[in-house]
């Protein structure tokens, strides 16, 4: 045996990505290496720390492989936020492949401390709300919504909602008690958090673009990778890249199905905003995009090009 990879991440083991991607990925690597790369799986932050610490843990060698959201550490990976801008994503499988291409073009510097295995997004996020539901921009005014990342909270604010920041575990409790009126998340997360049981309506949008998504990274410690003999490096390389990113994206898309099913079976109100209304939302959210581009320009990056490229890359994989 040449290596035992300590894999660390924040979700419980039965969640879709750990169950259908991370562990199968590790098994695949084990098999293709003839058992020479084994692994130990540590779900639910068992090796200590809060989820935002995961990136440093893999950089510093506390763990060998991690899965996390760069958005947990706002300001540190600004380039990834292109994918978190309003109305960027299509399905996760296509968007994740685009994310890989975008990573290769723009994010190598941001992630230079680690060996990136895959980058991906979740499926399109939507609004899950109590009460009559969000059928127009007006319904959103003053609504207390919980958003997951810096960009999403900015978007909610610019749309007129009151963003409420809180840790994810507090969401079900706060929903059931009316501390918040709703939350934005993809279907995939609604099942484990039992969100469908706590809200009355789900709002999605017309057209091929989803409301928002979040950017994820699956990465390996550089020293761990460098210490492998060449044939084992190749096993890791073979299991990295666009195809691997596509795989996680597909798992995310498949993970959406049970959440949607539960909500449908409960008879929750399914709202799809028509094209005219969707266009109003896009217009209202435009300042967030402009603001991000300006921010990137200030940092000496070409914000407009990054935004346009991300959009075009998503388009390319979505049209196939």
């Amino acid at each position: 045996q040449d290596a035992v990879l300590k894999i660390h991440q924040f979700l419980p083991a039965p969640a879709p990505v750990p169950k259908n991607f991370i562990v199968p990925w590790a098994e695949k690597v084990k098999e293709e290496s003839g058992g020479r790369i084994d692994y130990e799986f540590y779900p639910s932050m068992q090796l200590g720390g809060a989820p935002p610490a995961l990136y440093d843990q893999v950089r510093d060698g506390v763990a060998d492989v991690i899965w996390t959201l760069p958005g947990y550490t706002p300001g540190r990976f600004p380039g990834t936020e292109a994918f978190e801008l309003p109305f960027m994503p299509t399905n996760a499988e296509a968007t994740s492949q685009a994310a890989w291409d975008y990573y290769e073009k723009y994010l190598q510097d941001e992630f230079e401390d680690v060996k990136v295995i895959a980058v991906h997004t979740h499926g399109p996020g939507l609004i899950h709300a109590k009460g009559d539901g969000v059928e127009s921009l007006e319904d959103l005014q003053g609504m207390k919504l919980r958003g997951p990342t810096r960009m999403v909270n900015k978007m909610l604010e610019s749309l007129g909602a009151t963003p409420v920041g809180m840790p994810v575990p507090a969401v079900p409790e706060s929903l059931s008690k009316g501390v918040i009126d709703g939350t934005v998340i993809p279907w995939e997360v609604t099942a484990p958090l039992k969100v469908a049981e706590l809200v009355d309506s789900h709002t999605s949008f017309s057209g091929d673009r989803g409301f928002y998504t979040s950017f994820f990274i699956f990465a390996m410690n550089k020293d761990t990778y460098d210490a492998l003999p060449d044939d084992l490096k190749k096993v890791i390389d073979d299991n990295s890249g666009r195809e691997t990113s596509k795989w996680v994206g597909r798992v995310m898309d498949e993970g959406d199905a049970p959440g949607l099913k539960i909500a449908t079976e409960r008879g929750n109100k399914m709202i799809v905003l028509d094209e005219a209304e969707t266009a109003r939302w896009k217009e209202a959210a435009q300042p967030v995009i402009d603001g991000w581009i300006a921010e990137m320009n200030e940092k000496g990056m070409d914000g407009q090009a990054m935004y346009d490229d991300a959009k075009a890359m998503i388009e390319q994989y979505s049209s196939n």
Binding site: L47, G48, A50, A53, D56, Q57, G61, V62
Partner: peptide, 10 residues
């Protein structure tokens, strides 16, 4: 390394 690095943010 693991524990020392961990203690930076733990």
């Amino acid at each position: 390394v693991p524990i020392m690095a961990s203690l930076k943010s733990l």
